[in-house]
Design a protein around this nucleic acid. Structure first.
Length: 644
RNA sequence: GCCGUUGUAGCUCAGUGGUAGAGCACUUCCUUGGUAAGGAAGAGGUCAAGAGUUCAAUUCUCUUCAACGGCUCCA
């Protein structure tokens, strides 16, 4: 007999070799029907795999994240079975579960998959699922595994096998499909009731663009049609807040083929948001002891050779323009220009920390396939600053930058993000990263210490650092689920030396400063793209391009509306009048859809009493008010930068 | 850059081997109204660009450009 400990602490005895499914059945038949996997001593197992020793057991259902990923992984196998039955000879690479569904990478031998093929595959998958085929686990020796895939002619699986140890290899079979797989899997295919293959994509083998490109099919599956429909509905809803759609609807920005891909033209409404953001940044940075500078958009080749950027990033810089034998580049970053301002005057420890800030315009020739609305562009306006400080000042400065992030995030109500502490990868030293192994470890330790002492939640990821030092990236997700770095805070132990930047210490010796690169509001492009999705276009009052719209009930009240408009304008409130001879219902509908925060309805009552009727976007009628008190409240809301 | 898909009016989309249509938006006129769509008329398109096949191409083929979904990349 073995002892099974359940999550509530209860210990029950079972025959050795009992499965999680049998344990579930001993509790209730209803539970057993929902169990799709099990966590055995913290490891996710098949619910049908015999447990031979004492164990703590958690039964996993669709509602557990591990349950979902097992479900989707099994769905990937089901899809592979369907693909193999329709396209014999297909070779498979890997087919994992992802955040929302699963994919399988395969080599179809030059055959193209079409949308119709996806529909065929869905139908075939449903048929196969209906057979309730059991997922059977089998341990195999490495030799047998190699034989199997040699015979099948699947060199991709053979490649996988190379890195696996004999004795740790398992196959899973369901129906007519057998795959090399660690598992776990759901008990049988009957659990998969609703399937949607979402898209076809190319994916480089092993993620390396020098390798062959395989065909990747993405899909999602659910235990019921209802849940699939809910998911698809949610995806549709998310598309409605896509910043590209909102940006066009709200007149925020546009792009034009004749200007060039990835080059944003900010329209008047977008420019208002830019100016409000800059106002916030300038106030905040002034209070935090920053000084503002302005630098050119171009620089000579030598500048970027000194900084070390050119060899690393030449491919993603616009090609140089050559004049009188000198090459000039459009700047892809502001640091070298700022470093030159540091170098322009002799610096003493008394000048430190020196904080130079600029909304700098940068140009990066991102690959065409990487461009994405406002999130990935070729001309960007960065909320940039460089802090030159001593080692002793570093912790405090770095921490102050983090505090600035949090201040901003509070203003915008940003709470869905991950702080990523991005480290170097020792294997890439001298290639992707400056070859200074000790300095890397030292600065990484300094940053880690700040994070730990301030109790900032973060994740550490190696191989994501800048080439000159470690950094903290704030990761966010777009409406369609793509991940982006919204803001960044970087340590640089490299460029100070390269630019021979020095300050004089109290003991009269020269010293190279540490440099912090930081952009808490990222770039205007990405930040506004993010805000559009974050607010679903319903900006808080202080950011709203139009803050108040006057809606006269009929033309007769236009003159009074004009006087109200004058008062609002005098109070520096962005307001306008809907002068169309439409009915009030129509004007309200259009203004609501345009997401203008306040509507003032002006008719006979209001004109006679010299008042206004206030309506808040999304909230409805707020009743009749004095113009003076309305203006006072609105001004307060704007000044405080209140949320929605 | 790579794989795949798409490109018709400002927007959302029909449609056709014989040079185009709807709804919304826009303009004008009528209407002057009380908290989410009043009515009528009108204007607006080299059917992304170029080449080919054809008596004839927006439609078929190819190339280019751009956008989209991924991959790769992101100082």
């Amino acid at each position: 007999m073995i002892k099974i400990t359940l999550p509530d602490g209860a210990v029950r005895e079972f025959e050795a070799g009992t499965t999680a499914l049998q344990v579930a059945r001993s509790i209730s038949e209803g539970l057993a029907r929902k169990v799709i996997a099990a966590s055995v001593n913290g490891e996710v197992w098949d619910a049908t795999r015999p447990i031979s020793q004492d164990a703590t057991l958690k039964l996993l259902t669709w509602n557990d994240p591990e349950g979902k990923s097992t479900f989707w992984h099994s769905s990937a196998h089901l899809m592979a079975e369907a693909v193999e039955s329709i396209f014999p000879g297909v070779k498979f690479w890997v087919g994992p579960a992802v955040d929302n569904g699963f994919y399988y990478d395969m080599d179809l031998g030059g055959r193209q998959i079409t949308e119709e093929d996806l529909r065929r595959l869905e139908t075939r998958m449903s048929e196969l699922a209906g057979k309730n085929s059991i997922y059977i686990r089998k341990s195999v020796s490495k030799a047998d595994a190699i034989n199997y895939f040699t015979e099948k002619g699947d060199e991709y699986k053979l490649d996988l096998l190379q890195n696996l140890k004999d004795g740790e290899i398992s196959f899973y079979t369901q129906g007519n499909f057998t795959d090399l797989c660690r598992g776990p899997h759901i008990p049988d295919t009957g659990f998969i009731k609703a399937i949607k293959l979402t898209n076809i994509a190319g994916a480089y083998w092993k993620g390396d663009e020098k390798n062959k490109q395989l065909t990747r099919i993405y899909g999602v599956s659910y235990p019921s049609k209802k849940e699939l429909d809910e998911y698809l509905h949610m995806v549709e809803e998310a598309k409605k807040r896509d910043h590209r759609k909102l940006g066009r609807e709200m007149g925020i920005y546009t792009m034009d083929d004749d200007v060039g891909p990835g080059l944003v033209l900010w329209m008047p409404n977008g420019t208002i948001i830019i100016e409000e953001l800059e106002k916030l940044a300038k106030e905040t940075e002034r209070d935090a002891g920053y000084q503002r500078v302005v630098t050119p958009h171009i620089g000579k080749e030598n500048l970027y050779l000194t900084s070390g950027h050119l060899p690393y990033y030449q491919d993603s810089m616009y090609p140089p323009m050559e004049l009188d034998g000198v090459k000039y580049y459009l700047k892809a970053m502001n640091c070298p220009h700022h470093h030159k301002i540091f170098a322009a005057e002799p610096r003493s420890y008394k000048d430190l920390p020196l904080r130079l800030a600029e909304y700098g315009t940068c140009y990066r020739y991102e690959q065409s396939g990487e461009l994405f609305g406002l999130m990935r562009v070729r001309c960007l306006h960065m909320n940039d600053a460089h802090i030159y400080c001593s080692k002793e000042q570093f912790a405090q400065e770095f921490q102050a930058v983090n505090a600035m992030y949090l201040k901003y995030f509070k203003i915008f109500g940003i709470d869905k993000y991950v702080m990523r502490f991005s480290l170097h990868d020792p294997a890439e030293l001298g290639k992707k990263y400056i070859n200074e192994p000790e300095l890397w470890l030292e600065t990484e330790a300094m940053v880690r210490k700040v994070l730990q002492e301030t109790g900032t939640p973060y994740i550490e990821v190696s191989g994501e650092g800048a080439f000159y030092g470690p950094k903290i990236d704030v990761q966010i997700w777009s409406a369609i689920g793509r991940e982006f770095t919204l803001a960044t805070n970087q340590v640089d132990f490299t460029q100070g030396k390269r630019f021979k930047l020095e300050y004089t210490r109290p003991d009269n010796h020269p010293e190279t400063p540490l440099i912090i690169h930081r952009a808490p509001l990222g770039t205007h492009e990405r930040f506004i793209g993010f805000l559009l999705e974050h607010y679903a276009g319903k900006f808080p009052l202080w950011l709203a391009p139009q803050q108040v719209k006057l809606l006269p009930i009929s033309d007769k009240f236009l003159p009074y509306a004009q006087t109200v408009l004058e008062s609002l304008k005098k109070a520096d409130i962005r307001a306008g009048i809907d002068e169309r001879s439409e009915k009030i219902g129509k004007k309200i509908r259009d203004t609501e859809l345009a997401r203008v925060p306040y509507m003032l309805i002006i008719g006979e009552k209001e004109m006679n009493d010299q008042k206004i009727s206030v309506r808040r976007q999304g909230k409805g009628d707020l009743g009749i008010q004095d113009l003076e008190s309305f203006i006072r409240d609105v001004k307060t809301e704007i000044t405080l930068r209140s949320g929605v």
